[in-house]
Amino acid sequence: MYDFLKSLDRRWIFLLMLLAVAIPILGGWRFPERPSPLVETVFDTIEDLPAGSRVWMAYDYDPASQGELHPMGMAFARHCALKRHKMYFMTLWPQGTVMVQSCLDMLKTEFPDLVYGEDYVNLGFRPGSEGPIKIIVTDLRKSVSSDINGVSLDEIPMTRDLKNVQGVDLIINVSSGTPGTKEWVLYASTPFHITTVAGCTGVQTPYLYPYVPDQLLGMLGAIKGGAEYEFLLLDAYPQLRDNPDAKEALRRMGPQLFGHLLLIALIVMGNVIYFMQRQRGEV
């Protein structure tokens, strides 16, 4: 056994990981959640805004991180729609338009009473990394002259009177890297004191903690943050409980648990082998 584990072919580990994630998905295993303080802060921030508030939805992620971030993006959009906030969607990632469109499709299906242009608008993609943020915080029209359909901002009811991003009540940023939450903190929230909350990937989460709470009010970290947010949303809005699409992150916590347990088992096993090797003088 010791010799087998010492020279274990990595394909066995790959197979174990595949099974650890696949079996809970096939079995549909789900577990209850307990929201953490940071997630509760994000939820309360959106919940406590007066109905009809202006919310800038900066969705800076693409399909490469959809598994982690798209549930958050959808949950934020659902929450804002339920609160009747005005949503301004924009992305700084070229393929982010696909993710934004997916949210808009959801709004169209689940909230047919919301009107495009009056309740939500898609301002599309802007290249230049942090460049567009630097402009739109002082003059929106210098970077964005029309929505995704080519309609001038002066013709759209909800953008007609919006001069710049300082005019919104909240920035919600869903971020998978650069440009993302850090750039919104650097160029919008810190210099202009615009309330900002975020949802970000697991890789980014630890790096963003120094900004909380002075520059970033709260954040959802990785899929776990998304699951906790969905839990709070379902708790506050019982009408969503029959909607399976509103439980995407909660669903992902099953494979997450077994994946983490496997990782821990592998680390422990690797160290046991290491100490045995040391005892035998092999290392």
Binding site: I13, P63, Q66, L266
Partner: peptide, 27 residues
């Protein structure tokens, strides 16, 4: 693009597991 990009990043789950077994030692 969508399946290709997301699967590329998903692959890292396998390599992280392999690395955890081989390199994550309490030295």
């Amino acid at each position: 693009y969508r399946p290709l990009a997301s699967t590329m990043f998903a692959l890292l789950a396998f390599y992280i597991a392999s690395a955890a077994f081989r390199a994550f030692r309490a030295k």
